[in-house]
Design a protein around this nucleic acid. Structure first.
Length: 867
RNA sequence: GCCUGGGUGGCGGAAUAGGUAGACGCAAGGGACUUAAAAUCCCUUGGGGCAUAGUCCCCGUACGAGUUCGAUUCUCGUCCCAGGCACCA
């Protein structure tokens, strides 16, 4: 064993051993219990950042821990390789997205290997590989055949200058991020997955995922957004049209005094036609179309609308009510039409105030006068029905049911359930994605590609368009096809799929990554799936995780798998964030693009002062990323891993700071030196494994400490993945070993002491093995074990009889304030400790001359005297 | 705006079932060793108070109320921060 701890020589050596022996490659083995541990795979942006390191270190600790517990652990890694950044980078650097992507993958794989993660690299996948997306296309066809996919028109952000669709992220203050021109809402045909068919099931199972964080399930439930109510038809006055609304408050229908349609509602322009409002309506609809979806939905918008010049009839009282279109009505939700009840809905109330429509209260709170209802604001609570014809006098909850019944009898409405969840639009007008495997035939319409012609491969010779528009449509060879049904000349679909599609089933592909007869080999997928523990950023709490749950249901319903939930347990790791730096001229800046001068920061390119922005999650687009390379170079992988784990518990957000990395390195050095000091003395000394009763003094205390540490570390990992406290426990054990060393030098140690020391040192090494695998493997070998065997060594077990000391510290409070403490025998009865507490000198000062009202005692813990 | 979290020393954090607030580490200060530096080791370290310097007292877990013998922990309200909001992944 070297004198000095030198990660630069140790780490590559063990990484080589793991690689050469295929230490983490696994195969299905029905005789062993499996454990599938998965971290969310990265987008190959080029460099891993510290957020990845945190995520993958957490996962690696669990994988290594489970391996030591005897499980057959599947721990794969791959690349979520399609997406916009590759296209943007390709345009900027005049290269090809594929080239850019695969180079990034190579660079990042190298970085991951340097960190010593225990992946089964033989299972690596990249979603841009035709052998991967081939099966995605195959599944698309199966879904198409089963009516799970359809085409429809929907609104998108459109930049007319760049002739392309823009992601919300690419719209900056209503303008295109590249050319700066105003963005418009355009209707576009696209493909949709019927995820709404699964809304109820996805919602129901939110209560059957005990291994998921409550907050994620709550977010998913809210995203699905089930609401129960009724659909009601309102006939339009003087026209052969009806407007159907969805409402959760059918009990307030007598108070409906106007109608609001979403600007995109098909009846808006139709009804305004020929009225004096026609021009105003057209102008308003046009204005709404100019607003990007983000702006319209997200900001605290003033309610705005315009009268259509048309009326409809409230079917319950035949009252004529005006029809408006307004910005707060959304075509995507419900039916795109809202019956407005200003007396009992705050949004409607504000709109009514602004446009002067009637406000009629129909529910009266108890003990109030009807005139006082809905004066200042809408009344949304319960009460007695008024102004509601036959329902007057009933409680509104009761009337709710009666009114729906009445609608159904009259044929004007019915009970209905509405979800906020919308169908999943998967069409992207981009190049770098999996092509939708469909052909448009002038005679047969849309026809799926024949299975034997899969994959529909992305052509490599393309001209990317500035702005990221779809270059496939101008690639003649790709577009021109023959109809699989009739053989006529046809056009190939040029949309590619949302990259969320790839990430919705990759976890199953890892089970048999090279399988070429289907999406996955049935035996393998049934052995490994579902994922036992999934780990990833909390930012994926809704979309990715919900899409994956949906996809797994589709796979099950198509008979491809037997389970419908993909992830048994989920750990959502908090984000690593950092302050952004922004130049007024050049936008976001990397640290190396800035310059320090006179205690301020300036842009290197233009010299303007840089504004420090908000603290945000690390992302390449914000340029606030930390590259772990330098840290690994300086301290080694083990220190970086240790620090990421020690800095905070995994679920917590972490604002990046390097303060403390040094401490991790120092700690590893401390163990290294301790081992160096003692190993010569322990050479022929077996590890102590007897009862603590046969030991005494400091040796006994240390032995107990070692067992306590095993319990603490095991509990911290098992129950809540709190590696930070696990590490501090091992630090305390190491401190205790140093404490003993200061009393007894290695050369002078008797046999029992050396044996206990060996036990403690081995314990510390084994407990740290999942977290810092290189140094521990080295020390394990130095301690006389078979080289490379630590990764598969049994996790230690603690002795129950070595867990507790026999004295307890009792805390004494007077009126809940700490006034004293004393040691007493464990299990001392309450009366004894009470007497002892009352005798305490400091305590007597506080109770002297006062009446003792009550004494609360908690066994082995505390006495509280109330005076 | 809506949904979901979070807020504890100079910093990261600990307190796992309502019972000693600040474990462990970083930073800082002081000391030892050294010709010197690095490394290492030891001590101090939330704020304030004191004729008694203590096993001392007061305040303190974003802010304001409440429940309780006792609240960082439970309840209500307020402020601030972060994530998501459907074409970033």
């Amino acid at each position: 064993m070297e004198q000095r701890y030198d990660p630069k020589t140790i780490e590559p050596r063990w990484q080589q051993v793991w690689e050469d022996t295929g230490a983490f490659a696994v195969k299905e083995d029905p005789s062993r219990e499996k454990y599938y541990l998965l971290e969310m795979f990265p987008y190959p942006s080029g460099r891993i950042h510290i957020g990845h390191v945190r995520n993958y270190t957490i996962g690696d600790v669990v994988a290594r821990y489970k391996r030591m517990r005897g499980y057959n652990v599947l721990h794969p890694m791959g690349w979520d390789a399609f997406g916009m950044p590759a296209e943007n980078a390709a345009i900027d650097n005049n290269t090809h997205p594929a080239k850019w992507t695969y180079e990034n993958i190579d660079a990042m794989r190298k970085q991951l290997k340097r960190l010593g993660f225990s992946y089964d690299w033989s299972r690596e996948i990249a979603t841009c590989d035709p052998q991967y997306y081939r099966w995605e296309q195959w599944l698309f066809i199966r879904m198409y055949e089963n009516g799970m996919v359809y085409r429809k028109e929907s609104y998108v952000n459109w930049c007319n200058t760049c002739r392309t669709v823009l992601a919300n992220e690419q719209v900056e203050a209503g303008s295109c991020w590249r050319c700066g021109k105003q963005v418009k809402q355009e209707k576009l045909w696209g493909w949709f997955f019927r995820i709404t068919d699964y809304a109820e099931d996805l919602l129901e199972y939110c209560d059957r995922l005990p291994g998921w964080p409550e907050k994620v399930l709550t977010m998913q439930k809210n995203w699905i957004g089930k609401s129960e109510g009724a659909e009601i038809s309102f006939p339009v006055s003087g026209a052969d049209e009806t407007i159907t609304v969805f409402t959760t408050r059918p009990d307030t229908i007598f108070g409906a005094t106007f109608m609001v349609l979403a600007p995109e509602h098909p009846l808006v322009q139709k009804l305004a036609q020929g009225t004096e409002q026609q021009f105003a309506v057209e102008e308003f609809v046009e204005k709404m179309a100019r607003e990007s979806r983000t702006d319209r939905l997200l900001e605290n918008r003033e309610k705005e609308g315009v009268f259509l010049g048309a009326w409809c009839i409230n079917p319950v009282n035949n009252r004529q009510i005006p029809i408006y279109t307004a910005n707060f009505a959304l075509m995507e939700y419900g039916t795109g039409a809202v019956m407005a009840v200003p007396a009992h809905d705050q949004r409607d109330f504000e709109f009514a105030g602004k446009y002067g429509t009637d406000i009629i209260p129909v529910i009266k709170p108890e003990d109030t006068h009807i005139e006082d209802t809905a004066r200042e604001q809408a009344y949304t609570g319960d009460g007695e029905m008024v102004n509601s014809g036959p329902f007057d006098g009933l409680h509104n909850r009761r009337a709710y049911e009666d009114i729906i019944q009445w609608f159904e009898n009259q044929g004007i409405g019915r009970r209905a359930i509405s979800y906020r969840l919308r169908d999943w639009g998967i069409s992207r007008q981009r190049y770098w994605g999996a092509p939708v495997p469909v052909v448009h035939c002038p005679d047969c319409g849309t026809v799926p590609v024949d299975e034997k012609d899969l994959p529909v491969v992305l052509p490599e010779d393309i001209d990317l368009l500035e702005g990221g528009g779809s270059p496939l449509s101008s690639h003649e060879e790709f577009v021109n096809a023959t109809c699989p049904a009739c053989g006529a000349t046809a056009k190939r679909e040029t949309d590619t799929m949302d990259t969320f599609v790839e990430s919705s089933w990759y976890f199953a592909r890892y089970c048999s990554p090279g399988y070429d007869k289907g999406m996955f080999e049935p035996g393998a997928v049934e052995y490994w799936m579902p994922v036992d523990q999934y780990i990833g950023g909390v930012e994926h709490a809704v979309m990715h995780l919900l899409y994956s749950r949906y996809f797994t249901r589709v796979l099950k319903d198509l008979g491809l798998v037997s389970f419908k939930e993909p992830f048994t347990r989920l750990l959502t790791q908090g984000m690593v964030s950092k302050e952004t730096q922004q130049c007024p001229e050049h936008g976001f800046l990397y640290p190396e693009e800035t310059q320090y001068r006179d205690e301020s920061v300036f842009c290197r390119k233009c010299g303007r002062p840089v504004q420090s922005g908000r603290v945000e999650k690390m992302s390449k687009s914000k340029k606030n990323i930390i590259d772990p390379n330098e840290l690994v170079e300086h301290y080694g992988a083990d220190t970086v891993r240790l620090f990421c784990l020690f800095a905070s518990p995994p679920e917590r957000d972490l604002e990046w700071s390097e303060q403390g990395v040094e401490g991790g390195f120092r700690f590893l050095n401390r163990i290294w030196r301790l081992a160096g000091n003692w190993i010569p003395r322990m050479e022929n000394e077996p590890s102590y494994d007897g009862a603590p009763a046969d030991l005494e003094g400091e040796t006994r205390d240390l032995y107990i400490k070692a067992h306590q540490t095993i319990k603490k570390v095991t509990d911290d990992i098992e129950a809540r993945f709190h590696f930070n406290t696990a590490i501090s426990a091992v630090m305390e054990l190491v401190n205790a070993m140093y404490g003993l060393e200061s009393q007894i030098k290695p050369q002078a140690a008797d046999s029992k002491t050396a044996a206990v020391m060996r036990y403690s040192l081995e314990t510390a090494v084994v407990l740290l093995a999942p977290m810092v695998p290189h140094i521990t493997e080295e020390l394990w070998t130095a301690l006389g074990n078979k080289p490379g065997s630590l990764a598969n060594t049994q996790w230690p077990v603690y002795r129950k009889d070595a867990l507790t000391a026999d004295t307890r510290l009792i805390v004494v409070q007077v009126n809940g304030k700490l006034r004293g403490k004393f040691e007493t025998e464990a299990g001392a009865d309450e009366e004894t400790i009470k007497q002892q507490a009352l005798a305490d000198e400091n305590v007597t000062r506080f109770i002297e001359g006062k009446e003792i009202k009550k004494v609360i005692t908690v066994k082995d813990k505390l006495v509280n005297i109330v005076v």
